[in-house]
């Protein structure tokens, strides 16, 4: 039989409980703080970029329209037009999507639906490893292999071009698209496949008529994530872009996308020039937000 607690013991238990509650409250605060930290970082970065980037237009009399649609970028003469870069970014991103999405999607379908387990076991980790390669190495690869290849085979004076960017970005977005799309396809209930096959559909027919449509929203997510990777990529792009300040008229033109502009010049820019680079950042940021919004809209429509 346990003896009844003495007064002193009760007191001590009360104390230790108090300590427990304190600890509880404290840890909750710490978690909250951590969570706030990421929100705070977001606000700080966005706030800072917008503050710096809007200054020339608010206080120095530059026109935002001229900034976005201007075709000349000569900081020493006070000319800040980023239209060629916007065009380069848009083409590079969509070009990469046009190549990367079908390849990524077919790979995902192959891995999830067609490949024997033994083969999927080799390809899947390989694709995931591709995601872990630092982007500068993609750039180096592009510079060492893709650029000379284009130079020699297309007879270009300079292999660094829009096409080189597109190819590098397409490879870079593959792991994201493959992994996310494969997960989405695997999540489609087996009963759909059985239902379709039992109706005399072929395996390929089943994949394209039932499985892929059922995985539509996940596949959209895969594309959005791949797109995010492509549009913000800087390091690999710098190495293969060529960085000419022209509006590209063909895939083989050397171009300078938005990200590259910021990274190349921020190191030495000051004053209005620096602020204009922040403004470039605003445009890039809005571009990403817009694309995400559009794709989210499309995929939610698809979900119904």
């Amino acid at each position: 039989m346990p003896s009844p607690l003495t007064e002193k013991q009760t007191l001590e238990i009360g104390k230790s409980n108090k300590r427990k509650y304190m600890l509880e409250k404290l840890s909750a605060r710490i978690f909250l703080l951590c969570a706030l930290l990421s929100v705070l970082s977001l606000l700080l970065i966005v706030g800072f970029v917008f503050y710096k980037g809007s200054h020339p237009f608010v206080a120095e009399g530059y026109s935002f329209i001229d900034f976005v649609f201007g075709v000349d970028w000569v900081p020493s003469e006070g000319k800040f037009g980023i239209f060629p870069m916007i065009v380069a970014s848009v083409f590079a991103t969509f070009g990469a999507l046009i190549i990367g999405v079908p390849i990524g999607l077919f790979t995902a379908i192959f891995l999830a639906e067609i490949a024997p387990k033994s083969i999927a076991k080799i390809i899947s980790p390989a694709v995931q490893l591709l995601a872990g390669i630092p982007s500068v190495l993609y750039g180096v690869f592009g510079l060492a292999i893709i650029v000379p290849f284009l130079q020699n085979n297309l007879g270009l004076a300079k292999g660094q071009s829009l096409l080189a960017i597109i190819l590098v970005l397409a490879i870079m977005m593959l792991p994201t698209i493959v992994t996310v799309a494969e997960t989405a396809i695997r999540a489609v209930p087996k009963t759909y496949r059985e239902g379709s096959l039992a109706l005399g559909a072929s395996q390929i027919g089943t994949i394209f008529k039932v499985v892929v449509p059922a995985a539509k929203s996940g596949i959209m997510a895969a594309i959005v994530l791949g797109l995010g990777r492509a549009i913000g990529e800087t390091m690999a792009v710098i190495l293969v872009a060529g960085n000419s300040l022209i509006i590209p008229t063909s895939l083989t033109d050397s171009v300078r996308p938005l990200t590259t502009n910021i990274a190349l010049e921020m190191g030495y820019a000051f004053g209005t020039h620096q602020e204009m680079l922040f403004a470039t950042g605003i445009v890039l940021f809005s571009f990403i937000l817009l694309l995400n919004f559009v794709l989210a809209k499309i995929s939610s429509k698809g979900g119904n």
């Binding site: 009963t191 059985e194 239902g195 379709s196 005399g200 559909a201 449509p213 059922a214």
Partner: peptide, 21 residues
Amino acid sequence: FQKPNLFPMSIYDNVAYGPRM
């Protein structure tokens, strides 16, 4: 099948699925 396994499409498309295939 044991559980109804209609595809996530319209009633019409479900029934027309096999013939279309």
